[in-house]
Amino acid sequence: MISAASLIVLRSFILCLALLALCACDHASPQTDLQGSAMGTSFVVSVVDFPAELDADVLRQDILDALGSLDKLASTWRDDSELSALNMALSVDWVAVSAPFCDLLERSLEISRITKGAFDPTVGPLVNLWGFGPAGAITEPPTDGDIVAAQHRVGFDLLEVDCNEQLVRKDVPDLYVDLSGWAKGHAVDLVAGLLESRGIDNYMAEIGGELRIRGHNRNGRKWAIGIEAPSTSERVPHAVVHVTDTSVATSGDYRNYFEHDGQRYSHTIDPRTGRPVTHKLAAVTVVNASAAFADAMATALLVLGPDDGPELARELGLAAYFLVRDASGIQEITTPDFDTLSTQ
Protein backbone atom coordinates (compact mmCIF):
# COMPACT_ATOMS: atom_id res chain seq x y z
CA MET A 1 0.00 0.00 0.00
CA ILE A 2 1.14 3.52 -0.72
CA SER A 3 -0.26 5.71 2.03
CA ALA A 4 -1.98 5.33 5.38
CA ALA A 5 -4.15 8.29 4.47
CA SER A 6 -5.68 6.34 1.62
CA LEU A 7 -6.86 3.64 4.07
CA ILE A 8 -8.85 6.21 6.00
CA VAL A 9 -9.82 8.83 3.45
CA LEU A 10 -8.93 9.76 -0.09
CA ARG A 11 -6.37 12.57 -0.10
CA SER A 12 -7.40 13.45 -3.60
CA PHE A 13 -11.10 12.72 -3.94
CA ILE A 14 -12.88 13.40 -7.23
CA LEU A 15 -16.54 12.39 -7.42
CA CYS A 16 -17.24 10.60 -10.72
CA LEU A 17 -20.79 11.38 -11.80
CA ALA A 18 -22.98 8.77 -13.44
CA LEU A 19 -24.20 10.49 -16.56
CA LEU A 20 -27.36 8.44 -16.74
CA ALA A 21 -28.52 10.39 -13.70
CA LEU A 22 -27.92 13.65 -15.54
CA CYS A 23 -29.05 12.80 -19.04
CA ALA A 24 -31.85 10.57 -20.29
CA CYS A 25 -30.38 8.76 -23.28
CA ASP A 26 -32.28 5.94 -24.99
CA HIS A 27 -29.34 4.46 -26.85
CA ALA A 28 -26.52 4.21 -24.33
CA SER A 29 -23.64 1.92 -25.15
CA PRO A 30 -22.89 -0.98 -22.77
CA GLN A 31 -20.41 -0.24 -19.99
CA THR A 32 -18.32 -2.77 -18.08
CA ASP A 33 -17.04 -1.82 -14.62
CA LEU A 34 -14.02 -3.53 -13.11
CA GLN A 35 -13.44 -2.88 -9.40
CA GLY A 36 -11.00 -3.96 -6.73
CA SER A 37 -8.63 -3.00 -3.95
CA ALA A 38 -4.92 -2.37 -4.33
CA MET A 39 -2.17 -0.14 -2.91
CA GLY A 40 -4.22 0.53 0.22
CA THR A 41 -7.11 2.04 -1.71
CA SER A 42 -9.74 1.10 -4.28
CA PHE A 43 -9.92 1.27 -8.04
CA VAL A 44 -12.70 1.42 -10.62
CA VAL A 45 -12.15 0.97 -14.34
CA SER A 46 -15.19 1.70 -16.54
CA VAL A 47 -14.96 0.52 -20.14
CA VAL A 48 -17.48 1.49 -22.80
CA ASP A 49 -18.07 -1.07 -25.56
CA PHE A 50 -15.84 -3.69 -23.94
CA PRO A 51 -14.05 -5.57 -26.74
CA ALA A 52 -15.70 -8.93 -27.38
CA GLU A 53 -12.35 -10.68 -27.71
CA LEU A 54 -11.30 -9.72 -24.17
CA ASP A 55 -12.22 -11.45 -20.91
CA ALA A 56 -13.21 -8.96 -18.18
CA ASP A 57 -12.02 -11.22 -15.34
CA VAL A 58 -8.64 -11.69 -16.98
CA LEU A 59 -8.27 -7.95 -17.53
CA ARG A 60 -9.20 -7.24 -13.92
CA GLN A 61 -6.52 -9.67 -12.75
CA ASP A 62 -3.99 -8.05 -15.07
CA ILE A 63 -4.82 -4.70 -13.48
CA LEU A 64 -4.36 -6.15 -10.00
CA ASP A 65 -1.04 -7.68 -11.03
CA ALA A 66 0.20 -4.37 -12.45
CA LEU A 67 -0.79 -2.47 -9.32
CA GLY A 68 0.75 -5.16 -7.12
CA SER A 69 4.04 -4.79 -8.96
CA LEU A 70 3.99 -1.03 -8.43
CA ASP A 71 3.14 -1.51 -4.76
CA LYS A 72 6.16 -3.78 -4.34
CA LEU A 73 8.24 -1.10 -6.03
CA ALA A 74 7.14 2.06 -4.24
CA SER A 75 5.35 1.26 -0.97
CA THR A 76 6.54 2.57 2.39
CA TRP A 77 4.15 0.11 4.08
CA ARG A 78 5.84 -3.03 2.77
CA ASP A 79 9.21 -4.12 4.14
CA ASP A 80 9.86 -6.03 0.91
CA SER A 81 9.39 -3.03 -1.43
CA GLU A 82 12.31 -1.50 -3.29
CA LEU A 83 11.52 1.83 -1.68
CA SER A 84 11.64 0.35 1.83
CA ALA A 85 14.97 -1.26 1.02
CA LEU A 86 16.35 2.14 0.03
CA ASN A 87 14.98 3.77 3.18
CA MET A 88 16.42 1.06 5.44
CA ALA A 89 19.86 1.18 3.85
CA LEU A 90 21.84 3.51 6.14
CA SER A 91 24.48 4.27 3.53
CA VAL A 92 25.62 7.26 1.52
CA ASP A 93 27.12 5.08 -1.21
CA TRP A 94 25.63 4.68 -4.66
CA VAL A 95 23.04 1.87 -4.62
CA ALA A 96 21.89 -0.12 -7.66
CA VAL A 97 18.14 0.07 -8.29
CA SER A 98 15.76 -1.14 -10.96
CA ALA A 99 15.07 1.03 -14.01
CA PRO A 100 11.35 1.55 -13.18
CA PHE A 101 12.18 2.60 -9.62
CA CYS A 102 14.89 4.99 -10.76
CA ASP A 103 12.47 6.52 -13.24
CA LEU A 104 9.92 7.11 -10.48
CA LEU A 105 12.53 8.87 -8.34
CA GLU A 106 13.86 10.95 -11.22
CA ARG A 107 10.45 12.19 -12.29
CA SER A 108 9.39 13.02 -8.73
CA LEU A 109 12.60 15.02 -8.24
CA GLU A 110 11.84 16.95 -11.41
CA ILE A 111 8.52 18.07 -9.86
CA SER A 112 10.48 19.10 -6.76
CA ARG A 113 12.75 21.28 -8.86
CA ILE A 114 9.84 22.84 -10.75
CA THR A 115 8.02 23.67 -7.51
CA LYS A 116 11.17 24.70 -5.60
CA GLY A 117 10.55 22.08 -2.94
CA ALA A 118 6.81 22.48 -2.40
CA PHE A 119 6.61 18.89 -3.61
CA ASP A 120 9.34 16.80 -1.99
CA PRO A 121 9.59 12.99 -2.03
CA THR A 122 11.84 13.12 1.06
CA VAL A 123 9.12 14.71 3.24
CA GLY A 124 8.40 11.31 4.86
CA PRO A 125 10.04 12.03 8.24
CA LEU A 126 7.78 15.05 8.69
CA VAL A 127 4.68 13.17 7.53
CA ASN A 128 5.45 10.45 10.06
CA LEU A 129 6.24 12.97 12.80
CA TRP A 130 2.86 14.63 12.33
CA GLY A 131 1.04 11.29 12.54
CA PHE A 132 0.07 10.81 8.90
CA GLY A 133 2.45 8.01 7.93
CA PRO A 134 3.05 4.35 8.74
CA ALA A 135 4.15 5.24 12.28
CA GLY A 136 0.50 5.98 13.18
CA ALA A 137 -1.63 8.89 14.36
CA ILE A 138 -0.77 11.36 17.12
CA THR A 139 -3.03 13.36 19.41
CA GLU A 140 -0.96 16.50 19.84
CA PRO A 141 1.55 18.37 17.67
CA PRO A 142 5.25 17.52 17.93
CA THR A 143 7.67 19.86 19.66
CA ASP A 144 9.67 22.48 17.79
CA GLY A 145 12.81 20.51 18.57
CA ASP A 146 11.37 17.35 17.02
CA ILE A 147 10.38 19.29 13.90
CA VAL A 148 13.85 20.76 13.49
CA ALA A 149 15.43 17.33 13.95
CA ALA A 150 13.16 15.83 11.27
CA GLN A 151 13.92 18.68 8.89
CA HIS A 152 17.60 17.69 8.89
CA ARG A 153 16.48 14.51 7.10
CA VAL A 154 14.34 16.32 4.52
CA GLY A 155 15.38 17.91 1.26
CA PHE A 156 15.03 16.70 -2.31
CA ASP A 157 18.56 17.89 -3.03
CA LEU A 158 19.79 15.21 -0.58
CA LEU A 159 18.75 12.49 -3.03
CA GLU A 160 20.80 11.87 -6.16
CA VAL A 161 19.84 9.66 -9.09
CA ASP A 162 21.75 8.46 -12.13
CA CYS A 163 19.23 6.54 -14.20
CA ASN A 164 21.70 5.96 -17.02
CA GLU A 165 23.54 3.71 -14.60
CA GLN A 166 20.46 2.82 -12.50
CA LEU A 167 22.06 4.20 -9.34
CA VAL A 168 20.71 6.17 -6.39
CA ARG A 169 22.54 7.86 -3.53
CA LYS A 170 21.39 9.44 -0.28
CA ASP A 171 23.52 12.33 0.99
CA VAL A 172 22.45 11.58 4.57
CA PRO A 173 22.15 7.96 5.70
CA ASP A 174 18.70 8.22 7.29
CA LEU A 175 17.03 10.03 4.38
CA TYR A 176 13.49 8.69 4.03
CA VAL A 177 11.76 8.74 0.65
CA ASP A 178 7.96 8.68 0.33
CA LEU A 179 6.40 8.58 -3.15
CA SER A 180 2.77 8.68 -2.02
CA GLY A 181 2.27 12.12 -3.59
CA TRP A 182 3.12 10.66 -6.98
CA ALA A 183 2.43 6.93 -6.96
CA LYS A 184 -1.38 6.88 -7.22
CA GLY A 185 -1.23 9.08 -10.29
CA HIS A 186 1.50 6.88 -11.72
CA ALA A 187 -0.69 3.86 -11.03
CA VAL A 188 -3.50 5.43 -13.04
CA ASP A 189 -1.12 6.04 -15.95
CA LEU A 190 0.06 2.44 -15.67
CA VAL A 191 -3.49 1.07 -15.85
CA ALA A 192 -4.33 3.41 -18.73
CA GLY A 193 -1.38 2.09 -20.68
CA LEU A 194 -2.53 -1.48 -20.01
CA LEU A 195 -6.05 -0.71 -21.24
CA GLU A 196 -4.81 0.96 -24.39
CA SER A 197 -2.44 -1.92 -25.12
CA ARG A 198 -5.54 -4.15 -25.22
CA GLY A 199 -7.26 -1.93 -27.78
CA ILE A 200 -9.60 -0.19 -25.32
CA ASP A 201 -10.37 3.33 -26.56
CA ASN A 202 -13.20 4.52 -24.28
CA TYR A 203 -12.61 4.25 -20.56
CA MET A 204 -12.32 5.94 -17.19
CA ALA A 205 -9.68 4.61 -14.79
CA GLU A 206 -9.84 5.80 -11.16
CA ILE A 207 -7.50 4.87 -8.32
CA GLY A 208 -7.92 6.51 -4.93
CA GLY A 209 -9.61 9.54 -6.51
CA GLU A 210 -7.07 10.15 -9.30
CA LEU A 211 -8.47 9.74 -12.81
CA ARG A 212 -7.51 9.08 -16.40
CA ILE A 213 -10.16 9.41 -19.10
CA ARG A 214 -10.13 8.51 -22.77
CA GLY A 215 -12.68 8.61 -25.57
CA HIS A 216 -16.35 8.92 -24.68
CA ASN A 217 -18.73 7.73 -22.00
CA ARG A 218 -21.62 5.33 -22.65
CA ASN A 219 -23.71 8.18 -24.04
CA GLY A 220 -21.11 9.13 -26.62
CA ARG A 221 -20.09 12.30 -24.79
CA LYS A 222 -17.12 13.55 -22.85
CA TRP A 223 -16.83 12.16 -19.34
CA ALA A 224 -18.42 14.32 -16.62
CA ILE A 225 -16.19 14.54 -13.54
CA GLY A 226 -17.44 16.12 -10.34
CA ILE A 227 -14.92 18.10 -8.29
CA GLU A 228 -15.81 17.62 -4.64
CA ALA A 229 -16.75 20.54 -2.42
CA PRO A 230 -14.24 20.97 0.44
CA SER A 231 -16.53 19.78 3.24
CA THR A 232 -15.66 17.55 6.19
CA SER A 233 -19.28 16.43 6.68
CA GLU A 234 -20.58 15.48 3.22
CA ARG A 235 -19.47 14.59 -0.27
CA VAL A 236 -21.13 16.73 -2.91
CA PRO A 237 -19.75 18.14 -6.18
CA HIS A 238 -18.75 21.80 -6.17
CA ALA A 239 -18.27 21.85 -9.94
CA VAL A 240 -18.39 19.50 -12.91
CA VAL A 241 -15.82 19.40 -15.69
CA HIS A 242 -16.43 17.62 -19.01
CA VAL A 243 -13.18 16.16 -20.33
CA THR A 244 -11.64 13.43 -22.45
CA ASP A 245 -8.16 12.17 -23.29
CA THR A 246 -6.67 13.59 -20.10
CA SER A 247 -6.18 13.04 -16.36
CA VAL A 248 -7.68 14.75 -13.32
CA ALA A 249 -6.20 14.87 -9.80
CA THR A 250 -7.28 16.76 -6.70
CA SER A 251 -5.50 17.48 -3.43
CA GLY A 252 -7.39 18.83 -0.41
CA ASP A 253 -6.84 19.61 3.25
CA TYR A 254 -10.34 18.94 4.55
CA ARG A 255 -10.58 15.21 5.28
CA ASN A 256 -7.34 13.92 6.79
CA TYR A 257 -6.39 15.96 9.85
CA PHE A 258 -6.37 15.99 13.64
CA GLU A 259 -7.42 18.65 16.15
CA HIS A 260 -5.67 19.79 19.33
CA ASP A 261 -6.70 22.65 21.61
CA GLY A 262 -9.17 23.92 19.03
CA GLN A 263 -6.68 24.01 16.16
CA ARG A 264 -6.88 21.76 13.12
CA TYR A 265 -3.68 20.26 11.72
CA SER A 266 -3.91 19.17 8.08
CA HIS A 267 -2.07 16.17 6.63
CA THR A 268 -0.71 18.52 3.95
CA ILE A 269 2.81 19.20 5.21
CA ASP A 270 4.92 22.01 3.79
CA PRO A 271 8.40 20.46 3.42
CA ARG A 272 9.96 23.91 3.60
CA THR A 273 8.55 24.77 7.06
CA GLY A 274 8.15 21.28 8.49
CA ARG A 275 4.55 22.04 9.48
CA PRO A 276 1.01 21.55 8.16
CA VAL A 277 -0.21 24.31 5.89
CA THR A 278 -2.27 27.02 7.59
CA HIS A 279 -3.45 29.12 4.65
CA LYS A 280 -7.01 29.31 3.30
CA LEU A 281 -6.54 27.19 0.18
CA ALA A 282 -8.80 24.16 0.69
CA ALA A 283 -8.34 22.15 -2.51
CA VAL A 284 -6.61 22.14 -5.89
CA THR A 285 -7.57 20.21 -9.02
CA VAL A 286 -5.13 19.79 -11.90
CA VAL A 287 -6.05 18.52 -15.38
CA ASN A 288 -3.10 17.16 -17.34
CA ALA A 289 -2.25 14.42 -19.84
CA SER A 290 -0.24 12.61 -17.13
CA ALA A 291 -2.06 11.52 -13.98
CA ALA A 292 1.25 11.27 -12.12
CA PHE A 293 2.16 14.85 -13.01
CA ALA A 294 -1.34 16.07 -12.11
CA ASP A 295 -1.20 14.20 -8.78
CA ALA A 296 2.15 15.67 -7.76
CA MET A 297 1.34 19.17 -8.99
CA ALA A 298 -1.99 19.23 -7.13
CA THR A 299 -0.08 18.46 -3.94
CA ALA A 300 2.55 21.12 -4.64
CA LEU A 301 0.03 23.82 -5.53
CA LEU A 302 -1.93 23.09 -2.35
CA VAL A 303 1.25 23.52 -0.32
CA LEU A 304 2.04 26.80 -2.08
CA GLY A 305 -1.28 28.35 -1.10
CA PRO A 306 -3.86 30.71 -2.62
CA ASP A 307 -1.34 33.25 -3.95
CA ASP A 308 1.80 31.39 -4.98
CA GLY A 309 -0.12 28.31 -6.17
CA PRO A 310 -2.16 30.01 -8.91
CA GLU A 311 0.86 32.10 -9.88
CA LEU A 312 3.00 29.01 -10.51
CA ALA A 313 0.14 27.23 -12.30
CA ARG A 314 -0.26 30.14 -14.70
CA GLU A 315 3.49 30.34 -15.21
CA LEU A 316 3.60 26.64 -16.13
CA GLY A 317 0.48 26.82 -18.32
CA LEU A 318 -1.43 24.33 -16.14
CA ALA A 319 -5.16 23.76 -16.17
CA ALA A 320 -5.77 24.23 -12.44
CA TYR A 321 -8.80 24.97 -10.26
CA PHE A 322 -8.43 26.35 -6.73
CA LEU A 323 -11.04 26.45 -3.96
CA VAL A 324 -10.23 29.06 -1.31
CA ARG A 325 -12.01 29.65 1.99
CA ASP A 326 -13.01 33.15 2.96
CA ALA A 327 -15.55 34.83 5.23
CA SER A 328 -18.35 34.33 2.69
CA GLY A 329 -17.65 30.66 1.97
CA ILE A 330 -15.65 29.16 -0.88
CA GLN A 331 -14.18 31.23 -3.70
CA GLU A 332 -12.87 29.83 -6.98
CA ILE A 333 -9.61 30.70 -8.71
CA THR A 334 -8.98 29.27 -12.17
CA THR A 335 -6.12 29.44 -14.63
CA PRO A 336 -6.62 30.40 -18.29
CA ASP A 337 -5.99 26.80 -19.37
CA PHE A 338 -8.67 25.52 -17.01
CA ASP A 339 -11.11 28.12 -18.31
CA THR A 340 -10.94 26.50 -21.75
CA LEU A 341 -12.51 23.32 -20.34
CA SER A 342 -16.25 22.71 -20.38
CA THR A 343 -17.61 23.18 -16.85
CA GLN A 344 -20.91 23.66 -15.10
Score class of each variant (00 low, 15 high):
residue 289 A to H: 15
residue 233 S to L: 04
residue 210 E to W: 07
residue 64 L to R: 13
residue 39 M to D: 10
residue 108 S to K: 05
residue 191 V to M: 10
residue 214 R to I: 10
residue 155 G to H: 09
residue 216 H to C: 14
residue 4 A to K: 14
residue 148 V to Y: 04
residue 322 F to R: 10
residue 294 A to W: 06
residue 30 P to I: 15
residue 60 R to S: 03
residue 336 P to K: 11
residue 194 L to V: 13
residue 235 R to Y: 10
residue 297 M to N: 03
residue 263 Q to L: 08
residue 155 G to L: 08
residue 70 L to Q: 14
residue 332 E to A: 13
residue 339 D to K: 07
residue 284 V to E: 08
residue 108 S to E: 11
residue 177 V to C: 00
residue 44 V to C: 14
residue 162 D to Y: 09
residue 208 G to F: 14
residue 51 P to W: 04
residue 3 S to Q: 02
residue 248 V to F: 10
residue 131 G to S: 05
residue 85 A to N: 00
residue 32 T to I: 11
residue 336 P to T: 06
residue 306 P to Y: 10
residue 66 A to L: 10
residue 104 L to C: 06
residue 304 L to W: 03
residue 100 P to V: 13
residue 199 G to K: 05
residue 77 W to S: 11
residue 147 I to E: 07
residue 343 T to K: 15
residue 120 D to S: 07
residue 191 V to L: 07
residue 285 T to L: 02
residue 49 D to Q: 14
residue 196 E to N: 06
residue 284 V to I: 11
residue 103 D to V: 09
residue 303 V to I: 04
residue 145 G to N: 00
residue 278 T to P: 00
residue 327 A to Y: 00
residue 307 D to R: 11
residue 189 D to P: 04
residue 328 S to D: 08
residue 225 I to Y: 09
residue 177 V to G: 00
residue 196 E to I: 03
residue 36 G to T: 00
residue 25 C to I: 05
residue 127 V to W: 03
residue 8 I to V: 13
residue 295 D to E: 06
residue 36 G to W: 15
residue 181 G to D: 08
residue 200 I to C: 04
residue 78 R to D: 08
residue 339 D to F: 05
residue 289 A to C: 01
residue 187 A to R: 11
residue 247 S to I: 03
residue 196 E to P: 04
residue 311 E to S: 08
residue 52 A to W: 04
residue 6 S to F: 14
residue 91 S to N: 01
residue 303 V to P: 12
residue 162 D to Q: 11
residue 160 E to L: 15
residue 106 E to G: 01
residue 134 P to Q: 12
residue 342 S to W: 15
residue 189 D to N: 06
residue 334 T to F: 07
residue 222 K to T: 11
residue 86 L to I: 12
residue 195 L to R: 04
residue 277 V to F: 01
residue 161 V to D: 06
residue 334 T to N: 06
residue 268 T to S: 08
residue 252 G to C: 04
residue 280 K to R: 14
residue 84 S to R: 02
residue 204 M to Q: 12
residue 48 V to R: 03
residue 293 F to W: 12
residue 323 L to P: 05
residue 222 K to N: 11
residue 166 Q to V: 02
residue 81 S to C: 06
residue 18 A to Y: 10
residue 282 A to M: 05
residue 265 Y to T: 03
residue 144 D to L: 13
residue 239 A to R: 07
residue 323 L to S: 09
residue 247 S to R: 05
residue 196 E to A: 12
residue 317 G to D: 08
residue 284 V to A: 00
residue 206 E to A: 10
residue 312 L to M: 07
residue 132 F to K: 06
residue 244 T to P: 02
residue 135 A to T: 13
residue 31 Q to D: 09
residue 286 V to L: 11
residue 65 D to K: 08
residue 37 S to C: 06
residue 117 G to P: 12
residue 258 F to T: 06
residue 91 S to P: 10
residue 124 G to A: 12
residue 256 N to D: 01
residue 318 L to E: 04
residue 15 L to R: 14
residue 125 P to G: 01
residue 116 K to E: 07
residue 71 D to W: 07
residue 232 T to H: 13
residue 23 C to V: 13
residue 53 E to A: 13
residue 201 D to W: 07
residue 228 E to A: 11
residue 82 E to Q: 15
residue 118 A to Q: 09
residue 326 D to Y: 01
residue 286 V to Q: 03
residue 324 V to S: 04
residue 281 L to K: 11
residue 59 L to Q: 02
residue 50 F to D: 00
residue 124 G to M: 10
residue 268 T to G: 06
residue 189 D to Q: 03
residue 69 S to N: 15
residue 45 V to K: 01
residue 304 L to F: 03
residue 325 R to Q: 02
residue 258 F to N: 12
residue 213 I to S: 02
residue 115 T to M: 05
residue 309 G to V: 10
